[in-house]
């Protein structure tokens, strides 16, 4: 079922990007991550509880996050990750995960508040061994989506 769920997350997240005026295409295959290490230095983690227990992790470059946050603020150019920008990026994760769980057929899932993590050489073990990832290509850069669910 995780494949179907990740499809829903990717589609709903792409729709959220599109609603912000960002071109977003989900065309990458769904596959288990080949490594714990992320290619990116920024991750937004949203936990899932109730019918789905696990977490969804959105990873991207800082530049992509800045561009997406700037787009949320009406096309502003943002110089760096200050508190306001971090809050906007968290809100983006909240919107993507919230929209996704609302589109899960026949399931009710709660989401936790988003957590933003930045750092270099970032390795992520998302929730459990049952992890699939995919990528969304946006006009501001690639967003990696990892979904980890308990069996």
């Amino acid at each position: 079922m995780i494949r179907e769920h990740l499809q829903v997350f990717a589609k709903a997240s792409s729709d959220v990007f599109a609603s912000l005026g960002v071109q977003a295409v989900h065309q990458a295959p769904l596959a288990p991550p080949d490594s714990f290490f992320s290619r990116y230095d920024l991750a937004i983690i949203v936990g899932l509880a109730r019918d789905l227990r696990g977490s969804v992790v959105y990873s991207m470059d800082t530049e992509t996050a800045l561009a997406l946050a700037g787009q949320m603020m009406g096309g502003m150019s943002l110089p760096g990750l200050d508190e306001m920008v971090k809050s906007a990026v968290c809100e983006l994760g909240n919107m993507c995960a919230g929209s996704s769980v609302c589109n899960l057929p026949g399931l009710t899932a709660d989401i936790t508040p988003p957590t933003l993590i930045t750092g270099s050489k970032l390795a992520i073990m998302a929730g459990s061994d049952n992890v699939l990832m995919t990528e969304i290509a946006t006009s501001f850069g690639t967003v990696e989506v990892r979904l980890g669910l308990e069996e």
Binding site: G54, K86, E91, P113, G119, G127
Partner: peptide, 16 residues
Amino acid sequence: TPPNILVGEGLEIFGE
């Protein structure tokens, strides 16, 4: 929710 383990250098965590 199940735990997420994160490892990295200079990790910063932000929750709004």
